[in-house]
């Protein structure tokens, strides 16, 4: 049984001017215990929305989301709140995700105050210190405030907060995008270690393909709210089947000057998510596009075992 399952989930937002923003369009995704599913795509692709839907911080307009076998829509308020001890999140901007008026001890301890009330003060403190040690922060950090910490340290506090209740699933929403290069590697390694130690499942959302690829067992590529390709990380990375994936990968710049990027570029810019193209979302920008592509939205189909792609030309 999968840990997290999204089935045909859609989400729209109403803009002030009356237009509708189609953030997520008919997405299905599963995440198993202990595995990392990477979710990549550019801004506006709907990746963060998927993360929030999985955590039930937003409710879908269509589709079913289950966690540990339970349909999240059917949970009572209390049960839903209790479930939050088992599925947590690490946000992109570390400073903004920490309450500037709480110190580190209070921030990391808050989930325990909410979910494990019977814990005494010293027991709770012990758990907090334990969590901090797991993210390589010592006891001296307990009394410090977020503004006194560096970006990397702040993100570690966010991670500590996410693991203190021993969850089974963590949504990582661009966890390293705001961090310096040298700190990114530290945090990625930390996340990997934590995953092994606690058997965590991750949904790793990012626009940086290289960071995602490192931790992921499977990779999903999103464009305009749709998953256009999904499969084993290595396969998607070395043999991308969807033109958008190919473009995305070739747009990434390697730090090795000897590696020249392939020039597979798409025309134009991403259309607005309020005005979705008919048929395949990529047509109009895609070098492979033909009339066939405009007729109807293209569903995912199996190309090779476990590797699915939504393209008529793949």
């Amino acid at each position: 049984m999968s840990l997290v399952k999204l089935e045909h989930v859609s989400k729209t937002f109403k803009r002030d001017k009356g237009s509708t923003l189609y953030a997520v369009n008919d997405v299905s995704l599963t995440i198993d215990r202990g595995e990392t599913v990477g979710l990549i795509g550019e801004s506006g692709a709907g990746k963060s929305t998927i993360g929030r839907l999985a955590l039930r911080l937003q409710t879908p307009d269509a589709g079913v989301i289950t966690f540990e076998g339970q349909d999240l829509a059917e949970l009572s308020k209390q049960s839903l709140s209790a479930v939050r001890a088992r599925m947590t999140v690490v946000f992109q901007e570390p400073y903004q995700s920490l309450n500037p008026r709480m110190n580190v001890g209070e921030i990391v301890g808050e989930p325990l105050v909410i979910h494990e009330r019977r814990l005494g003060r010293s027991e709770r403190r012990q758990r907090v210190v334990d969590a901090l040690e797991h993210v390589a922060l010592g006891q001296t950090f307990l009394d410090r405030y977020p503004a006194e910490l560096s970006g990397g340290q702040q993100q570690r506090v966010g991670i500590a907060r996410a693991i203190v209740t021993r969850p089974s699933f963590v949504v990582l929403d661009e966890p390293t995008s705001s961090l310096d290069l040298s700190v990114r590697a530290q945090v990625l390694q930390l996340l990997g270690d934590l995953q092994k130690e606690f058997d965590l499942a991750y949904l790793f959302i990012s626009h940086d393909i290289h960071s995602v690829e490192h931790l992921s067992s499977r990779l999903a590529v999103m464009y305009l709210g749709q998953i256009v390709e999904i499969g084993p990380a290595a396969a998607v990375f070395t043999d991308p089947l969807h033109p958008y994936t190919q473009a995305l990968l070739s747009a990434a710049l390697s730090a090795d000057p000897d590696v020249k990027p392939a020039r597979f570029l798409l025309r134009g810019e991403i259309p607005s998510p309020t005005n979705l193209p008919r048929g395949c979302f990529l047509h109009g920008r895609c070098p492979l596009g033909t009339d066939e592509c405009t007729r109807a939205p293209v569903p995912l189909h199996h190309a090779v075992a476990a590797h699915e792609v939504a393209c008529l030309k793949a």
Partner: peptide
């Protein structure tokens, strides 16, 4: 963001 984070950890 930190208010969203508080909700995410289950705060009432």
């Amino acid at each position: 963001r930190f208010v969203e984070a508080a909700r995410a950890i289950g705060a009432s």
